[in-house]
Design a protein around this nucleic acid. Structure first.
Lengths: 220, 220
DNA sequence: TATTTAATTTAGATTTATCTAAACCTATTT
DNA sequence: AAATAGGTTTAGATAAATCTAAATTAAATA
């Protein structure tokens, strides 16, 4: 497996996250995501195309090919394993792990990562509930849906939270909404889109639409 | 604390290791150590001087000042903590840790390193027996001497090994010479400078001068 | 279909870290 | 003191990653 620069890796990872399913990614989307300028994106797309990691025709957007996807999954594997390590072993809080993992993920020594994986007991998800690709790049396709889409009276498992600010963390901790706990929607109010939910064995309580938008569950 | 590029950090670390005690470091020494060219060294020295990390007058060699030394100790702290982590937790062998730590050491998040230190139980030396600076940059001055300098019949502790090749590792493992074990020199032969030593509770045996040159002990 | 707008690409410049080759110092030797 | 040999620095180039500003293209609108 070849090595890629930190910058190339950041582009590859961002494309992976943006392209989702069938769509292609545009120059502006990517520039926005990476806080850089469209011209810089075009330059890098030429480079990654030359390295045969993506499909790209000028003005037509781009999309990782098989090789590019493999590289992306390697980066994501490293990122999520480090996140797990930071939260589980070093006792970082949930909202702190992402930033540190952004740096650690670029240390790309296969043996290091595979041994880390083993040391951690081959965790299947990171602290935000996102699946960790295995050593071969296989990743579980998560059946995650937003809790706003969960039908009434259907039990599901809280699996991740999209926002990663410390503000949301504070609120989730206070309400004891943690990844892995069971949840059921008891009632939805059309007026403000708030909902009443039951988490674990707690009594039913209300959450705002704003919060609900950020909670994802595994319906199985 | 400011941040420095990977390249700057490598120069700072190399100067720290080369300058030892009173001496200054020369352009060629550093170029050789870093496998780069003298011209590149001069460029970087100007840069580090501008950043007030070292004393440097053209043609007169250079030496880290107080601030530069602090930066160097921070890098060495990170390096050695990661080495300890790799050996102790991920079960890397002795000769493998250095290379991986060379990459990890450049992730400079103070909280990460301090939490790693705590997780590891505040180890005082890395797997090669070299002391780990604490969070304030304090480092134990080790009374390490080469085993060739140890007087006869004086018990000391094997504290480090300078060569880090897998060849020496193989030999040391075979002879059961590990860091932390007691050692005593029983006899020295002038002819080939070989010596008879006792390690731990093993019977006395002979080691070559070549090997002895690489074994360091703490005489206390 | 021609025009306009917005997105995208190109051209040319900048910064960092590196290099080679030439110029320049320092110190030793004659 | 002059010559010379080595080490060191300068000058000028290159590659990677970025930027601004200008040119270009695609798509939407009139």
């Amino acid at each position: 497996m070849l090595n890629y620069s930190t910058s190339e890796e950041n582009y590859i990872k961002a494309i992976f996250h943006l392209q989702k399913q069938d769509g292609t990614v545009t120059t502006n989307e990517l520039a926005n995501e990476l806080k850089t300028k469209p011209a810089s994106v075009t330059d890098m797309m030429k480079k990654l195309k030359a390295k045969k990691l993506l499909n790209y025709q000028p003005y037509q957007g781009f999309r990782l090919n098989n090789d590019g996807t493999k590289v992306a999954l390697g980066i994501i594997r490293r990122h999520r394993l480090w996140e797990y390590f930071l939260a589980e072993k070093l006792k970082f809080t949930w909202d702190e792990v992402h930033e540190v993992a952004e740096d650690l993920e670029h240390v790309s020594n296969k043996k290091l990562i595979d041994k880390l994986d083993e040391f951690l007991g081959f965790p299947r998800t990171d602290p935000h509930g996102d699946p960790i690709p295995d050593a071969n790049g296989k990743i579980e396709i998560s059946r995650k849906i937003c809790i706003t889409e969960l039908p009434l009276h259907t039990v599901a498992i809280v699996s991740s939270v999209s926002d990663q600010s410390s503000e949301i963390l504070e609120l989730l901790e206070h309400k004891k909404i943690t990844i892995g706990t069971k949840v059921e929607v008891k009632k939805k109010f059309d007026f403000d889109k708030s909902m009443e939910i039951r988490i674990g064995r707690q009594p039913v309580f209300t959450i705002s639409d704003r919060l609900a938008q950020n909670i994802f569950v595994q319906s199985n």
